[in-house]
Structures are given as structure tokens and as C-alpha cells.
Design a protein around this nucleic acid. Sequence first.
DNA 1: CATGAATGAGCTTTCATTCAT
DNA 2: AATGAATGAAAGCTCATTCAT
Lengths: 220, 220, 220, 220
Amino acid sequence: MGRMTADESAHQAPADVAATPRGARTMARLRAAALEAFAELGWQGTRVEDIVQRAGVSHGTFYTYYENKAAVLDALVRDSQADFAHLASDRWEADDVRGALERVIGGFLDLYARDAMLMRTWLQAAREEKRFGALYREARALFVERVASNVSAVVTASGRTSGPPARTVASTLVSMVEHFAYCWMVLGESHERADAIASLVLVWGAALNALAGFEVVELE
Amino acid sequence: MGRMTADESAHQAPADVAATPRGARTMARLRAAALEAFAELGWQGTRVEDIVQRAGVSHGTFYTYYENKAAVLDALVRDSQADFAHLASDRWEADDVRGALERVIGGFLDLYARDAMLMRTWLQAAREEKRFGALYREARALFVERVASNVSAVVTASGRTSGPPARTVASTLVSMVEHFAYCWMVLGESHERADAIASLVLVWGAALNALAGFEVVELE
Amino acid sequence: MGRMTADESAHQAPADVAATPRGARTMARLRAAALEAFAELGWQGTRVEDIVQRAGVSHGTFYTYYENKAAVLDALVRDSQADFAHLASDRWEADDVRGALERVIGGFLDLYARDAMLMRTWLQAAREEKRFGALYREARALFVERVASNVSAVVTASGRTSGPPARTVASTLVSMVEHFAYCWMVLGESHERADAIASLVLVWGAALNALAGFEVVELE
Amino acid sequence: MGRMTADESAHQAPADVAATPRGARTMARLRAAALEAFAELGWQGTRVEDIVQRAGVSHGTFYTYYENKAAVLDALVRDSQADFAHLASDRWEADDVRGALERVIGGFLDLYARDAMLMRTWLQAAREEKRFGALYREARALFVERVASNVSAVVTASGRTSGPPARTVASTLVSMVEHFAYCWMVLGESHERADAIASLVLVWGAALNALAGFEVVELE
DNA sequence: CATGAATGAGCTTTCATTCAT
DNA sequence: AATGAATGAAAGCTCATTCAT
């Protein structure tokens, strides 16, 4: 979901610090250590000290590569979001909407599972640092817009014109997947993967069918 | 949604400090000042200093009434959640499921609108303070459980037995309303109230119909 | 010499922190401790820690009264400069120019002796902090301007019109007294007070006589 | 003015690093870069990083040539002061004292103008680093002593014996020229070169005449 | 009940200097 | 000779909380 603006990526470390293999190795260790620390201690709770300890480097070295802990998180989130963005860009083929739903929802949940700790950290940071809040809104907006455009296509094809705006519907559907994933994988609500996908596909499918006025998505 | 546990309410101010009218007035001013400060500065950004300044009392006075800023937020959230809990406890009558959906969804959005700044603060705090995280999970669990029980009743009445578990479906539906409300009223995503309710009722209704296998909720 | 501008005094502690006698006492101790620390350790060498240790208060207390070490120095310098400013404002009476010179030069040297360590600190700070550099230029400009105006009066009375501008002459004379005092009392150059005054008065007097074309200042 | 003591020059780079043409070039670039950096950023404000960037060499290379930034400044100041020392060593011929004054004062101002940024840096450094403070006092002492000896000669020739000691008078006169030059060329006080020389020669000349008791220096 | 001065632990960031390559 | 990654000490400032008045 989304992509950095120039401003947001402005705080990256100079490209040349990792020019040597040694530098690249240290940078990678700092990244991994940061992820680990964020997972264990949370965004707030993580001090630069916690990162460098896990990376096994000195305090000062951190600042050779990242301006501050926000810069490391930024780098981590940017990579993760690139993968999410792929999902959003898929078009739903009219003859296999169900398949499209399964792919986008399943893919989303899988990525979320992979990056759950990162998502948690990002959302923690987003509550307090404008930078990450804006990034979140931007990433979400992209997702909502792509879903809205697919929903629109389905409804238009069906000939229906009434009903709530596709953007609002898309916003509710995206909210559902996103927050469900958060509650499941970050807060620890207990669910089976198969049930989760079945539920989400059922709700999305039923909603699309209702909007279209006939069975666009096979639910049985 | 939810209710304090003994442990969480343990840090209330001594009952007697607010016994006098003067004490009660000071306490009320601190509450109002805290809400205002949280809204303006966020959970992190609010210092005890910011609260007492707005309340027009001295620094030390704060601690006469509340143990720390978490205690004020706790009190504010507790009151707000009592209202949310009412919504969750409604049973959906079989002959007017649509009406029930509209009441619970509409009521939720109205309460959320009233307390949007408080919700924001609470969620900020929940990301970093165990106390509020637990409170959030508890409140949410209550809601999910009540919705699951209503969904179950609808499905059972229809005679269907297959499909995803009611608890998982309920979790997705509750996630949808809750996060949509957050994105709309806290993050500032732009929506019309009527469209919002229409969308949410449509999705919930369609999902219930799909689960039940026939039109439990009239959608036209 | 000179007076604070609004901007320069902007960083003063809030007036009310020293409202109580206890607060006033602490503030005075911090001032005295700062002066002592500056004298011993120099501007650069003095850490807030050095000040609070000498004052016998905790680190945090310092920041209740002063924003940083520059703010204490500002306060100290402001008071000192008020005294210097008095000297500069004297008009030289035509019938006792020598007396006027002795008063202004002697007075300057006495004040400088009293505040030598403060002057040293101020000048150290002025080399690196714009705030104090500007303050110094301002204080000096006031002095030069007053001297120039007195020199002008003497020359005009004499009927002479040629010669270098009074402002330039005043600048050289003020430089002489000021830097001589610095080298003597700060750098430790060895001089007798009587010789110092005799030399300075001799040079100023001779210069005035030369400008006026006859003996305005009696030198024998 | 002045010359290094063994101790102060002890920290020179090993003689052989600049033995090769390449080494000599790098060293020269570091010198020039340092001067530039000091002028732009001040003594405090200049980091080794700022110097090597301007010189286009790596961080580590700096330490091949100079022990630290003080060592570069030391080298720069040493060269500059050699030129000042020439001025001080001139004897004033009895039949052209005015010419001697014009040469020494004019020469001083010209050198000061050429090296104003270096003087500023040196004086900044002198306020905080003993090494440069001592160097300054030494350079100044030499100047004062030479002037005192010339003043003495003039007075002795005149037959006068009373009056303040030549050393004290010389100290005031040297202070005047030096600090006037600083205020003019470093602090930016506005003066015309001709007026500056006229004023300074007038004051020195008048002082000498007063000491001698007759017109040693023609002032009209 | 109210006041507000005092405390001090805690985290961030900078940069001179070293040294393995 | 040159490189540049790594080091780590050092200092500033904030703010929740206490407690004497």
C-alpha cells in the first residue's frame, strides 16, 4: 500500500555509507535488530540502545546508517508496503471474481502474518509521529481506491445504479480485512486461517452480489 | 463495551477527595481539561502540566485526584464505554433484523462521533500501555461475542449448519464498523453519514442473508 | 554599555518561578554558582552539571529557572552592563574635560576589575553565540557613539573642522581602554592602576588636544 | 608577533608524510580547506568532517597530516604571525617618527585585513584553548615590548623622565590598534581606511608628543 | 485541599579519534 | 598514502512524581 513521498524518504542515510560490503552487513544487522527490538519492546519502548545491543555494534554506529529510530522503521515499512501494493493493483476479472477475492484477501492475510510485528510497530508509531500517520493514510487510500474501482466495475457491469457510493463500500470492506487482521495477528484474537478467509470472502462476496443484484460471486 | 476489572480500577483517587463540592468541582475540571489536552496534544504529547494548566490548578493538585494521566483517561473511557455496552446488549428480533442492524450500527457511529477524540486517545494509549490494551481487547471481545450470538441465532433459525463460525464472522463485521468509524472520524476520511450507514447495513445484511441462505434482511 | 532587546531577553525564566522566597533563594544561588563556574571553567568548559553542583541543587532544578546556561549568563551580563551604561552617559563639561576623562576611564577600569571574570565569560561566549556577539556589538556601539558625541563637542568648540571623523577617533579610543582592560585584568598583563589611568588619560587628553589644536586637557 | 615554543610545535605531522609531491598537495589542500571552514563556520563550529569535505579527502587522511584541528590552525597562525613580527621589529628613526608610525600602523592594518578570518578564528580558539591563549599573549608581549622600547627611546631623547612607564603606554597603544582592527575587520564596524590610519597616527603621535614634551611627531 | 519547588533517572545525538583494509 | 566504518564518552534537556509549606 502506498509509496514514500520525497519528503518522507528524505531522512534516509546517505547512499554511500553502505558502499562497502562491511557497511552493507552492518546496515542489515541494524535493520534486523531494529525489527527484533520493535517486536519485543514496542515502538515507544525501543531505544536506540536496544537496537545497537541486538546488532552488536556501538551506539555511534547506528547514527552512521540511520538518522534515528524512525528512519529504520521507515525503511522497514517501505519494503513491506511495496509487497502490499502489488495485491492492491490486481484487477478482478469478471469471470472469476471469487478467485480474485480469495487472492487479494488471502494474500493480504499472508503478508500481514509475515509482517505482523512490523505492522504493530508501524501503527504504534503512526499514532504519534505525523510521518507514519500520513504514510498510513496514504497507503490505505491507495487500497481503498483500487477496491472501489473494482467494485465499481462489478456494479456497472450489472447495470445497477442505485446504492451507496463504491468508495464508501470499499472503505468498509478494506477496514474489515485490515482491522480483522490486526485483531487476529497483533492482538491475538483466536481464529483459523480457513475460517478467516471463508468469512471475509463470504462477506465481500455477499456484499458484491447485493450491490450487483445477482450472483456475481458464487458463495456455495 | 467492557467494564473495569478490579485491578484496573484500583488506582482511583481516594473516594473522599471529591466528597466536598469544591473537590468535586476541581475533579470535574481536571477531567474536562484532560479530555481537551488529549484531543489537542494526543496521548503521548500530553503532559500532566498540560492538563493542570487547562484546569487552572497547580501541578500538585492533579495528584490529589488522579494517580497519573492514565487514571484520568481510564475514568473517561469507562464512562464512554458504558454507553457502547448498551448497544451490544440488544437482541436482534427475528422479524426486524434490518431495524436491529440499523440501530446498532447507527448508534455505534453516533457514539463514536461524540467521543471520537476520546477513542483516538484511548487507542493511542492502547498501543503502548498494557492496561488500555487489555481494556480494548475486553471491550471488543464483549461486542464480538454479542454479535456472534445474534448471528448464530439467525443462522440456526434458518436451519443452515455449514459455513464459517459465527464468532469469526462476527469478528470481521465488528472490525469493519469499528475501523471504518476510526478512519472516518479520527483519521478524517471523507464520508456521508447516510452512505456510511447504507454501506454498513448492506454488507452486514448481505452477509447474514448469505449465511442464512435466504433473505433474512431486506436489502431493497 | 547597552541594554537587552526584547529578543535577547526572551529566554528569561518565567517571572513567577521565583515568586516564593525559596524560589528567589534558589535562583540567586544558581546565579552565583554560574558565575563561579564560568570563572573557573570558562564558558565552553562549564556544563549545567558544574553549575548545579556548586549551587547544591539537582540538575532538573536548573531548568526551572533558566532555559540553559546562556540564559544565566545573559542575566548576569545584563546587570553588569547596566552599570557600564551609566559611565557612558556622562557629558564632559568643557571646563573640566580632564576630570571627565578620569571619571570615565577610572570608572570603567573599576567596573571591569569587579566583573573581570564575567567579562571574560561574556567575550568567550560572544565568539561563538550570535546572541552574545550581537549584545557585545550593541554595547560597544553605544559607548562609541557617546564618546564620539563628546569628542565632537570638544572639537566643535575649538573651531577646528578638519581631521578624522569623531566616530573613528572615538572607536580607537574606546578600543584602547577596553582591550587594555581585558589584557590587564583578564589575560593577566601586569600594570599598576595609577600608571594605567595616567597612560590612558594621557593618550586621550593628548588626542583631544591635538584635535582641538590647543590645550583642552591639561596634561602636566 | 611571536614564535612557537618547542612544546607548541611538538604536534606537527611527521615530516615525511608531506615529502612526496602527492602528500604535499594533500596537506596544502587540507590547510586551505581548514581556513575556508574556519571562516565559514568559526572555530567551534568547524568539525574535522567539514575540513575533509572541503579538501575532498577522506576522514582518516586528515589525521595523517595533522593531529587535530588545533594543529592546522597552529600552522596557519604561525605563518601569519611571522609577517606581523616583521612590523614589530622596525626601529623608529628619530628624524621620521611619523613615517615609522604610518608604516607600522598601516602595515598592521593591511596584514589584519588579509588575515581577518584567521585572526577571528585564532581569537576564538584563544578563548578556550590554553595553547592559543598562550600564543596570543606571547605574540602580544613581543609587540608591546618593541613598541615600549621605541617609545622609551623617544622619551629618553627628549630628556623627560616623569610620566607613566613606557611599557604601560605601549600596552595601551597596541591595544588600541589591535582591538580597533578587530572591531573594524572582524566585527564589521564601518570605517574608511584613510580615516582609520589618520585617527590612529594622530593618537599615537599626540601621545608621543605629550610624553616627549615637544613635537616629535608632526601632526599638521 | 492546594501549592509549586525540587528531584533525578533516562534518552538522544554528536564527533574526535582509531584502525583494519 | 588513503579510506571510511566503528567507537564510546559526553552533555543537554524533559517530565513524572514527591513533599514541605
